[in-house]
Amino acid sequence: MDPLKAIDQCYTTYTIEDLKNDILLPTPTDHKYTRGVLGVVAGSPEYPGAGLLATKAAVHSGVGMVRFLGTDALNLLIHLHVPEAVCTTNREKMPTPDAWCAGSGATGEERQELLERILDEPVPAVLDAQALPYFAQSIALNGPAKSHRIVTPHAGELHQMLTWIASLNPTLWNEHHAHDVPEQHDILKNPSYWAQHTARLTGATVLLKGHTSYIASPENEEGYKLQAPHSWLATAGSGDTLSGIMGSFLATHHAQARTQNHSLSTIDFLRVAASAVAIHHQATQNVHRNECGGPTPPSVVTEYIAQAISEIFSE
């Protein structure tokens, strides 16, 4: 059998029944802390909208609290548009969250320092965009991640991640792969393989985003694949929104595990990532309620996240 086809067969389609099992509903005894606290480091003076999209998506996804770590200007933007979020400029005064959502639009020296610091913290995290190069550099210098991460690259970002690892630690790269770093078009030809390969190389759960997204685990053979309902998601800001949903779900799952005195497994991280992609797809589809879709700005998609979650349990 073609080994690439064999790898593709390791990915199963994520279903509505899976989604019903993986979204944690609140109970009468829950409060904001048992529902999870998500820390967000996203956006910058250059890309303020990324922070707003990630934060708004997280709030609409059911997490107990969102703590946004920004600048004065970014915090004002968040306060005006997402009054539920708790904003601060000082990491020292910010309690440690149940999970981080970090990287979307987080450019500049100050945001870079925060991203590097978060990578050193033993807190589960969803890493996107600007956090991905720092994560790859950390893997190259320190080995596979010791605290679990969900990384969310598209093919171009994955090429950059693998380039960093191969350049900084060719021994590590050669232990896992005897060939050159794949170009973006090579990754697009075999996304299932490269998602799985990167998961095992880095020790992280890997969501390789695309029209069909592949989610691979560092320890489990099986992963998930999810196909978008249409192609209107190919727009700036979609990844920021997805990372906010995923961060919300991760914080809630980690908070529940903490209260029950157990740790999340690699399967849990896999399913958190898959459930977030599924809800993102459903929210996008709800914007127009037809098979072919239409323009779906991420700022509009955020308004449909809560409805998409509710509908899963009303069927």
Rank of each mutant, 00 (worst) to 15 (best):
308 A>R: 09
28 P>N: 05
6 A>H: 12
267 I>D: 12
252 T>M: 04
122 P>T: 05
187 I>A: 11
208 L>S: 06
42 A>T: 01
59 V>D: 00
268 D>C: 03
303 E>T: 14
106 A>N: 05
227 Q>S: 12
39 G>F: 10
268 D>W: 04
308 A>L: 07
240 D>C: 12
258 R>C: 04
212 T>R: 04
293 G>E: 00
70 G>H: 02
97 P>M: 05
191 P>I: 00
92 E>L: 14
233 L>Y: 13
11 Y>K: 08
285 Q>S: 11
255 A>W: 03
227 Q>H: 09
267 I>C: 10
10 C>G: 14
9 Q>V: 06
164 W>Q: 15
69 L>P: 01
50 A>K: 04
247 G>K: 13
45 P>T: 01
243 S>D: 01
216 A>L: 01
309 I>F: 01
124 P>L: 09
182 P>L: 07
91 R>P: 06
247 G>R: 13
262 H>L: 04
12 T>M: 14
123 V>P: 04
94 M>A: 11
258 R>Q: 11
18 D>K: 05
112 Q>P: 03
180 D>E: 13
40 V>D: 05
53 L>H: 00
198 T>C: 11
181 V>T: 07
101 C>P: 14
42 A>W: 04
100 W>H: 12
282 Q>F: 00
206 V>W: 15
110 E>L: 05
75 N>K: 12
236 A>C: 10
111 R>N: 07
104 S>V: 01
197 H>E: 10
105 G>M: 00
207 L>K: 15
160 Q>A: 02
288 H>V: 10
133 P>A: 04
